[in-house]
Simulated assay, not measured.
Amino acid sequence: MARLEDIARVIRSKNAGPYCVTLDILFGDEAAYRRVERSGAITRERMAALYRRPVEAVEVFHHPAALAMKVSFARQVPAGSVQDTDLYGAQQHVLLYPIEVP
């Protein structure tokens, strides 16, 4: 087993508008991308559980040509609101680092 942070070249997060966060997972080669894709480590259900969102509020996109995966989900509060703790959505990706990939 390896951690996702050891397999992916880039793991980052950012706002996708004021009501949504997107997580990007970029790979350096096709073997790494295929390994994570086949493992089922990045699924809608797993991301919903990890980020404590309803499954219907989470989308997972696979882009084999770009060797990338994208996860998008609704923010709990709008970006910049008084309750917001991450204005740019730039700290949300750290939960992905320790995901174990066979």
Score class of each variant (00 low, 15 high):
47 M>F: 10
84 D>K: 04
72 S>F: 00
44 R>H: 06
46 R>E: 10
80 G>E: 15
84 D>Q: 09
84 D>R: 11
41 A>C: 11
67 L>V: 07
49 A>T: 14
42 I>L: 14
44 R>V: 03
47 M>G: 01
45 E>L: 06
48 A>R: 14
71 V>N: 00
85 T>D: 12
51 Y>Q: 03
60 V>P: 10
39 S>K: 08
80 G>M: 12
59 E>I: 00
57 A>L: 03
56 E>H: 05
88 Y>T: 10
90 A>T: 10
39 S>W: 05
42 I>N: 12
38 R>W: 09
86 D>L: 02
79 A>S: 15
41 A>R: 08
48 A>G: 14
47 M>H: 07
71 V>I: 13
70 K>F: 00
61 F>W: 04
84 D>F: 03
65 A>E: 15
52 R>T: 14
87 L>N: 09
89 G>E: 07
87 L>I: 13
75 R>D: 02
80 G>I: 10
54 P>L: 05
70 K>Y: 00
86 D>P: 13
80 G>N: 12
89 G>R: 12
60 V>L: 04
38 R>D: 15
49 A>C: 10
90 A>Y: 05
87 L>F: 09
71 V>P: 01
62 H>P: 02
40 G>R: 12
79 A>H: 06
57 A>Y: 05
72 S>N: 09
79 A>P: 13
55 V>Q: 07
40 G>F: 04
55 V>N: 01
68 A>C: 01
70 K>R: 13
68 A>N: 04
69 M>P: 11
73 F>R: 00
51 Y>V: 05
36 V>N: 11
54 P>T: 03
42 I>K: 11
77 V>S: 02
64 P>G: 12
36 V>T: 12
38 R>G: 13
70 K>W: 00
47 M>L: 08
65 A>K: 11
53 R>M: 07
87 L>E: 06
38 R>T: 14
89 G>S: 06
81 S>L: 01
42 I>Y: 07
49 A>M: 06
72 S>M: 06
73 F>P: 00
43 T>Y: 12
67 L>M: 11
62 H>L: 05
77 V>W: 06
56 E>R: 15
41 A>H: 05
51 Y>I: 01
87 L>V: 11
38 R>A: 15
66 A>M: 14
81 S>E: 10
86 D>V: 11
64 P>W: 07
51 Y>L: 02
75 R>K: 04
67 L>C: 10
61 F>G: 02
85 T>S: 07
39 S>L: 05
84 D>H: 11
58 V>M: 04
62 H>C: 09
59 E>D: 08
63 H>K: 08
82 V>R: 15
70 K>I: 00
49 A>D: 14
64 P>A: 12
75 R>V: 01
48 A>C: 15
42 I>Q: 10
89 G>H: 05
90 A>V: 08
62 H>Q: 10
71 V>C: 02
86 D>T: 07
63 H>G: 13
69 M>I: 08
64 P>L: 01
36 V>H: 13
60 V>N: 08
59 E>R: 08
69 M>G: 10
70 K>C: 00
40 G>W: 04
77 V>Y: 05
37 E>V: 03
64 P>N: 10
52 R>Q: 14
46 R>F: 13
88 Y>G: 07
87 L>M: 09
38 R>F: 12
